[in-house]
Design a binder for these strands. Structure first.
Lengths: 114, 114
DNA sequence: CAGGATCCTCCACGATACTG
DNA sequence: CAGTATCGTGGAGGATCCTG
């Protein structure tokens, strides 16, 4: 990413740019929770997602050092994805995002005074 | 957003969908740090951002109850934006995202042994 | 099984001009 | 000052088929 000086004071912009992509946060979250996942398992869990999209975002995450790709030279092929050490530094954010979502999906139950 | 059952177990997807938009996290962060900002000030700080984009994302954030819009009936017009109570529940995430960005923009300085 | 290759669609975002 | 109105576009994401 071309990260010009304009955003030197906006580290948050750096973060969201790095993890830009409709599914990246979810992919990271899945890998965080399941530790290790094979490609098709991931693909299944993220339906509806296109192969092109999943494989592209995985590649970018790998290139950015957030996801590790372990390929076994077997037939049929076997590939396992997991978080790298660096990727694991995101888990607190992933947790908070998930919790925030939980609390906002449903109408807050504690103020129901009907 | 049409949030079908497929993602009932993916609250994180709810969160990122809610705050989807190239600038939304940055807008929220700015409002978090500056408390209250007028439209043009925000626009200035977020250059290069288009009016259409800023005003649209602000509107969505307002519709989602994350941002408050205070309009003063003066001439010239004066409008102030700030976080709502609900928007403030995001601040821990904003902080972590910002910190994560800081730590990743520069090559880690603590291992400089020159 | 784990993707790559192709083609296509759509809309988020941008640029610019205009207005109450 | 704080936006709308209009028009235009790139590229992210999708659908489908193919392959080592």
């Amino acid at each position: 990413m071309d990260f010009d000086a304009k955003f030197g004071n906006c580290p948050i912009y750096y973060t969201i740019s790095k993890i830009e992509g409709k599914w990246k946060w979810v992919i990271l979250y899945k890998l965080y929770k399941c530790k290790v996942m094979r490609y098709n398992r991931l693909w299944d869990d993220l339906q509806p997602i296109a192969h092109r999209t999943l494989s592209k975002q995985l590649k970018e995450l790998e290139a950015d050092g957030l996801v590790h790709r372990e390929q076994y030279n077997e037939v049929p092929p076997k590939v396992e994805y997991s978080l790298t050490k660096d990727g694991e530094t995101l888990t607190p954010i992933l947790d908070m995002m998930s919790q925030w979502g939980e609390r906002h999906i449903n109408p807050r139950p504690e103020v129901s005074n009907d």
